[in-house]
Amino acid sequence: MTEETMTLEVTRYRPGHDREPRTQSFTVPYRTDWVVLDALNHIKDRIDGTLSYRWSCRMGVCGSCGMMVNGVPKLTCAAFLRDYRPGPIRVEPLANFPVIRDLVIALDDFMEKLRRVKPWIIRAVEKPVSDGEYLQTPAQLDAYKQFSMCINCMLCYAACPVYGLEPAFLGPAAIALAYRYNLDSRDEGYRLREPVLSEAVGVWECTFVGECSVVCPKGVDPAAAIQRSKLAGATDWLLSMIMPWAGRR
């Protein structure tokens, strides 16, 4: 019995050799329980050991195996071959990011943006450890929980045409995380994050295409976070115009 196979069209790019990426086809065995990442591992183990890509947990938690699968940003550990039959499957590096090699993209820009929004709990005055934890009610947790599910996989940046056109744009995940900490009842860092968000390349750059929320593998809605941040920013601005004497939050 001949084994069923599938073809993967994989983007290759060798820095220093290639001027631009090219496509290489590989034929891999078809297994109903295989994901695209399994197929890439098969290629690396059995066909071409020079193929480069990132991966780690294989269970949709680490956020490192994001790639374009047939033009759509996906975690390759969750993209089953059976959903793309009969193929071929196009596997490309995440869109809108600089390519380092093959399917590996440069993370620096995103990491820098992530740091800039200070995605951690900020207190005006930290209370001593001996005073115990900062308590939170279930309703206070609910207010931000959805936005805390982000795994920094950057699929939303690959889906965002605004980021593709304007690399300075703060982008979906960073804004969603800033929003998540702004909503956290334990946090007091709104005024420190606000200048980053209210820059022209912050929330105002977004045109609400909404594709970031469509591709998110964790059900986060960055598009909503951005529009709500705009509404909050605009309301703040309006209040400061009407009542300049009143302190902003």
Partner: peptide, 12 residues
């Protein structure tokens, strides 16, 4: 940076 909220409010 400062005029963006104004135009956005009118847009909305």
């Amino acid at each position: 940076k400062t005029s963006e909220p104004f135009w956005w409010l009118l847009f909305a």
